[in-house]
Computed example of a mutant assay.
Amino acid sequence: MGQIRRYHVADIPVFITAVCHNRYPYLKPETNKQLILSVMREVKVEMDYRMLGYVILDNHFHWIIKPEGSNDFSRIMQSVKLRFTRRAQQNDHRIWQRRFWDHLIRDEADLHQHLDYIHFNPVKHGYSASPMEYNWSSYGEYLRRGYYSPDWGIHREPEGLGGLVPE
């Protein structure tokens, strides 16, 4: 298989999708959802980045981060996936697909579109009837900041999200 080229551009947000091996629901237990969040925050201390948005579902997660300085998102992802695997005590099983999907955020409109995609994802996959009902995303923080209205994304997909990201 050919080498994937990833382009590190300093101080640019990147949208990332990581999927569990064979789409197995390794992230289904709440303890594993909490563990992946804890690992993300731990890695953030060592490899400086801002976490702009996230959603953790049973077999994949979406994440928007903004690496600071010379930190690159491939190394950040490698560290998160490796630490999670070790701590979840799944060393005898492959938890993650080898690769992950990434997209460099082009501008403010692109960032907003990807945040909407992340926050609507639990509704899209049938985990909840509204983003507000799902605890494992950054939606609540954005709602508190006034970015969303309380009725945003209830029962139907907001405009402009169709076909945004392959899952």
Rank of each mutant, 00 (worst) to 15 (best):
P13D: 02
P13I: 01
V14K: 03
V14Q: 09
F15M: 03
I16L: 14
I16H: 06
T17P: 00
A18L: 04
A18S: 12
A18E: 10
C20A: 13
H21T: 00
H21P: 00
R23T: 08
Y24L: 10
Y24V: 10
P25D: 12
P25M: 14
L27T: 03
P29L: 07
P29M: 02
P29H: 00
N32H: 15
N32C: 05
K33R: 15
K33P: 08
Q34I: 01
I36A: 11
S38Y: 05
S38K: 11
S38W: 01
V39N: 14
M40I: 13
E42L: 08
E42C: 10
V43Q: 10
K44C: 14
K44A: 13
K44Y: 02
V45Q: 15
V45F: 12
R50W: 11
M51G: 11
M51D: 13
Y54F: 15
V55N: 08
V55W: 10
I56P: 07
L57N: 09
L57M: 15
H60W: 02
H62I: 00
W63E: 11
W63I: 07
I64R: 12
I65N: 10
K66S: 11
K66L: 09
K66G: 01
K66Y: 08
P67T: 06
E68Y: 08
G69Q: 14
S70K: 12
F73M: 05
F73Y: 15
R75H: 09
I76D: 07
I76F: 07
I76Y: 05
I76W: 11
M77S: 11
S79D: 07
V80S: 04
V80L: 07
K81F: 01
L82M: 06
R83K: 15
F84A: 01
F84H: 04
R86D: 05
R86P: 02
R86Y: 07
A88I: 14
Q89L: 14
Q89M: 13
N91Q: 15
D92W: 07
D92R: 14
D92V: 02
R94V: 13
I95F: 07
R99P: 02
R99M: 01
W101Q: 03
W101M: 00
D102K: 12
L104W: 02
I105Y: 12
I105H: 12
D107N: 15
E108F: 03
E108I: 10
L111V: 07
L111I: 10
H112E: 13
H114R: 08
H114Q: 09
L115T: 04
L115Y: 03
L115H: 01
D116T: 01
Y117F: 13
I118L: 08
I118G: 01
I118N: 05
I118S: 05
H119A: 08
N121G: 06
V123C: 01
K124S: 05
K124F: 09
H125V: 04
G126D: 03
G126C: 05
G126I: 01
P131T: 06
Y134N: 12
Y134P: 03
N135W: 07
W136G: 11
W136N: 13
S137C: 06
S137V: 06
S138H: 06
